[in-house]
Design a protein around this nucleic acid. Sequence first.
DNA 1: GCCGATTTGTCCGTATGTATC
DNA 2: CGATACATACGGACAAATCGG
Lengths: 244, 244
Amino acid sequence: MPKTKYELIYRDLKEKIEADEFPYQELLPPENTLIQIYDCSRNTVRRAIGKLVTDGYVQTMQGKGVRNIYRPVEQTAFTIGEIETFRESALRNGQTPRTKVLLFTEITADASLSKHTGFPAGSELYYLQRLHYLDGKPLILNHNYFLKSAAHGLTPEIATNSIYDYLENTLHMTIVNSKRTMTVEKITEIDEKYMDLNVDDYNCVAVVTSSTYNSDGIMFEYTQSRHRPDYFHFQDNAIRRPAT
Amino acid sequence: MPKTKYELIYRDLKEKIEADEFPYQELLPPENTLIQIYDCSRNTVRRAIGKLVTDGYVQTMQGKGVRNIYRPVEQTAFTIGEIETFRESALRNGQTPRTKVLLFTEITADASLSKHTGFPAGSELYYLQRLHYLDGKPLILNHNYFLKSAAHGLTPEIATNSIYDYLENTLHMTIVNSKRTMTVEKITEIDEKYMDLNVDDYNCVAVVTSSTYNSDGIMFEYTQSRHRPDYFHFQDNAIRRPAT
DNA sequence: GCCGATTTGTCCGTATGTATC
DNA sequence: CGATACATACGGACAAATCGG
């Protein structure tokens, strides 16, 4: 539950927009009206509107107003700009997630792995392979590397459920940000085997690699997520900034 | 040139971080110090820092400070969250862009195209196929649909240079936001022919579709960008928000 | 074209809350 | 506990863009 005022306003406006309470392509009430409605300062409504802009729900125009440009989406996929666990995004989309741990080992990073993952050579790591199912279909094959010192006590049971839940709620780690890249790579035999793929059909997978940092500033996770190409679907809302 | 104060501060801090003037993993000067340095209010420095956070340059920690987490990237690719033209991102990365117009026609959207692009049936459109080269290599094949009423006067010459430059500086259109999705699709014969690909090698391309809106709230562009998979590279910085 | 009303954009100063050390 | 530092919130001022008379 959000407890800040601007987040409450943000949620309320977002729900109203989704519920079609503001006509599509029309202007929302001006800031001054919203100030009265929510009994708050101008800064606060502006923060809420700012979030709706980055979400792609509205566009603001100086001198005119704030226009509702929200269109419901068939099937939203993975979010950009926010870290979401597999479980969270599945539930948000009304799908049933399931995770199978294929491999759970402890390794020490050698020079090659260090270069690949960004962990210092000699780091003690957990290395996991996990298969994520959505509504029964195996869609994502994850290679997870976790720093043992930061994620100590990790077990296959935890990995079957939510690792982030363990890190955040049991170890009280604060996860801050994650640098991600998206590329396309050749399929491997492991991909083929576990994701029911056939080289003659698709010979590539979509790969999302992420390096994730906690509030101590240390990178505690390196993950490579290999997605079945026919189900891979990322979304983004981009904003044009006035010419520099 | 940015003319707002917070943007100047943002740029200055960004350049200092890139120039390694703040040690990696260390804290930046606290807000109060920055207020004195830049002779501005707290809100203004906080706006600048907020942009650095979304850029993935720093992380903020309540009670501690603002940590520099910037690492130079080997080869940056396409930005997320901001609309950038092909030319802009190429120049930002120090590469040489070139564009070849393969097809320039005018069509009317029928029911099928309407469903595909989101333009109303009967819309008068420009349909272009353009091939983008980077440092001489054909990497992106674009299928562009522009609303004729919004982009009137478009010519193959303009399309060889920058369409956005024409829209923004000649037609004085204000481009606001763009909804994008990223998927992986099977290669087509056109892809194979123009991007020097071979089905036996890669049989997929990375596809970015975008629907772009101007300040009148109308979607004036639908574009499908088909990227050579071995050069496709998207970047993102995601932020973990406290559990809702 | 001008002027005034409306609306968003930028900026300032201040106060209070909360997390860290 | 106190000092420091970021987070939230308020209120006010002026600028810039839009629109109608």
